[in-house]
Design a protein around this nucleic acid. Structure first.
Lengths: 230, 230
DNA sequence: TACATTTGCGTATAATTAACGCAAACTCAA
DNA sequence: TTGAGTTTGCGTTAATTATACGCAAATGTA
């Protein structure tokens, strides 16, 4: 006869933001006991009557107040049965994007601190969260090349140079500015606005908007977004 | 105060096989009570001291005796909290490939029947297994275009026409035989053998082997497998 | 020996990608 | 007011890759 199943199920969230030409991830500081402090991904146990994605939303709302522009299941971590030393916990990880340009994260509470960390300055995290984060970064990078999720990291209206920088920074690649522009424009998924950048250096730059409706329409007709680099 | 978590965790497997120019999936017949019979994906509850992927292997071994050539996590289904009407069960689904050309599935036991089903002749399955299967098919299709997993569905040594038929059948697309051959050969990931097909119609065809070592080496140097169709 | 069939190699053309030139439109400082 | 510095926005050309075919070679069979 089998023993009763005694496995807990949790969700963890990797929230990415892009600001100051850098990719950031949201971490919280967990306090175990008095001196034991660890930065960790936001997350927690799933409630009995709650869907997995609702659990992620709830945990994020409890710990931060970010407004997600995109969320997707990443992977379920349950092969290392001692990833949490106290109990067996299986974690379903989700990654999400926010427009970080215009965002206040929740004020610190007694229990927790919340903070953006630059992607190349991540400390040692609790549990297997460094591994989870690596997987999220790698997924973000590849998704960026075949779906237009870069726009979910930018403000509603953005400069072409912002988009270009975002791609260069996250994918860590050089890119020909002119070919990149030509390619994206050829897709016809951007809308020009009448507005111009407030930045007062060089030739004034138009602000663009991503036309999601148009993108969906094209996609239904077999269009496939793709950004490749040398 | 929170109620104790009461959620079960299961794994389910989608095992694909390719034979007679068709894509097949392995299903088992589950018996609930006397008259209630349902075809379902192989799977079951995860044991306390067992990794997720071990659980899949174990369940498959208990129910079938297939030899997997590829396995990967697909998705975790836990948003519909009533997907199993008896308890809340979250299922981590894995999909796997086998060389079905030379394979005996386990003899029926009293409890269960095991059978290959052609992908376009799937009955109504237990729980949300039709949805899970759809997701697996869609993942298989897309993965086929950017990773060389087609070879995992074929025998060690195969004809070019087999590979070509596999792609046409699974992706449901026409393809120019000559361009397909040229493209695959240009990658240098196939080895010619000295052997020829036993089929006695038309010009004798060479048998080929997939050179996985060579593929891995190329991949490390930035090579990217890709098969696109018009 | 002619014919049906499938394999294996080749070539011409179209489409796409990569590499780069350069003027336009602004700010700022001399 | 003018020239230097900077960034944007639009082109042009060469290289590469994809697409659409043609056709002979090698078998079995009538």
């Amino acid at each position: 006869m089998e023993k009763l199943q005694n496995i807990r199920i949790a969700v963890d969230a990797i929230v990415f933001g892009y600001k100051n030409n850098g990719l950031y991830v949201l971490l919280i500081e967990q306090k175990f006991g008095s001196a034991d402090k660890y930065w960790a991904l936001p997350g927690g146990l799933v409630q009995n009557e709650e869907s997995l994605s609702d659990a992620v939303i709830r945990e994020l709302h409890e710990e931060t107040n970010v407004q997600l522009t995109f969320m997707e299941q990443l992977y379920t971590f349950g092969d290392d049965i001692h990833r949490d030393s106290r109990n067996r916990v299986i974690s379903v990880a989700y990654y999400a994007l926010v427009d970080a340009s215009n965002l206040e994260i929740k004020a610190d509470t007694d229990a927790e601190r919340v903070q953006w960390f630059k992607i190349d300055e991540i400390p040692s995290l609790a549990f297997d969260h460094n591994i989870i984060l690596q997987k999220a970064i790698s997924r973000l990078k590849s998704k960026l090349t075949y779906e237009p999720i870069g726009f979910d990291l930018l403000p509603e209206e953005f400069l072409f140079s912002d988009l270009e920088n975002l791609y260069c920074t996250i994918l860590e690649k050089e890119i020909d500015r002119r070919n990149f522009r030509k390619k994206i424009l050829s897709y016809g998924i951007l809308e020009e606005t009448e507005k111009f950048s407030p930045i007062k250096t060089g030739r004034p730059a138009k602000l663009f908007k991503f036309n999601k409706l148009k993108y969906n329409e094209l996609t239904e007709n077999g269009f496939h977004f793709e950004i490749k680099f040398a």
